[in-house]
Amino acid sequence: MTAILVDSNVLLDIMTEDAHWYRWSSQALEQAADNARLVINPIIYAEISVRYSTIEALDAALPKSLIEREAMPYEAAFLAVKAFMIYRQRGGTRQAPLPDFFIGAHAAIAGYRLITRDAARYRTYFPKLDLIAPNQSRP
């Protein structure tokens, strides 16, 4: 079965019932779950954790039976920094790689699709990555 890495923004849209993105994110995630394994990595887990006071509450919100946890391959860390170097060469001002570089690199190295509503950076730095993303800026 194929796998889809789920970006934190999609999960947070659902968890917060975001007024603009809840519908798109929940429908996209439901459709993805019908056709593939859903996966997160430690970076996505960390980004989502800001909403929860305990690890138990976070784990209850992200049941392992629905969304698998997976370590990020070392090759993905290498690719993430290479993408970050391109970002810096193009005038990016951040001093350390952004989480999106690690998330995109993980999906690219593992051969996973990525479900996200923030496709611009992924398309720029991982152009071959197969994205599930909205076609417009708002659903």
Score class of each variant (00 low, 15 high):
81 V>T: 07
75 E>F: 07
62 L>G: 04
36 A>I: 01
58 L>N: 06
42 P>T: 03
40 I>K: 00
66 L>E: 15
95 Q>V: 10
89 Q>N: 15
12 L>E: 09
136 Q>G: 15
61 A>I: 06
55 I>L: 11
32 A>E: 04
32 A>W: 04
118 D>A: 00
104 G>A: 03
94 R>E: 13
47 E>S: 01
54 T>D: 11
15 M>D: 11
11 L>V: 03
71 A>E: 10
130 D>R: 12
45 Y>S: 02
68 E>T: 06
38 L>T: 05
43 I>R: 02
86 I>E: 15
131 L>A: 05
35 N>Y: 06
106 H>G: 00
73 P>M: 06
32 A>V: 02
3 A>T: 05
67 I>T: 01
131 L>T: 04
78 F>S: 14
86 I>P: 08
66 L>F: 14
109 I>W: 10
66 L>D: 13
44 I>A: 00
40 I>G: 03
130 D>H: 09
85 M>H: 15
104 G>H: 01
29 L>F: 07
60 A>Y: 12
4 I>S: 02
29 L>G: 06
138 R>P: 08
106 H>I: 00
32 A>S: 13
41 N>E: 02
22 Y>P: 12
41 N>R: 01
70 E>P: 01
116 T>E: 04
10 V>A: 10
70 E>H: 09
123 R>P: 02
44 I>N: 00
46 A>C: 11
1 M>D: 10
40 I>N: 00
72 M>T: 12
20 H>L: 15
80 A>G: 08
52 Y>W: 14
29 L>E: 08
107 A>H: 01
84 F>A: 05
111 G>E: 10
27 Q>H: 13
132 I>Y: 06
8 S>Q: 04
98 L>P: 00
88 R>K: 13
135 N>H: 11
115 I>S: 03
36 A>L: 01
14 I>D: 10
73 P>V: 05
51 R>I: 06
17 E>D: 04
4 I>Q: 01
67 I>W: 04
31 Q>F: 09
103 I>D: 00
49 S>L: 10
95 Q>C: 09
121 R>W: 07
50 V>Q: 01
105 A>D: 08
102 F>G: 03
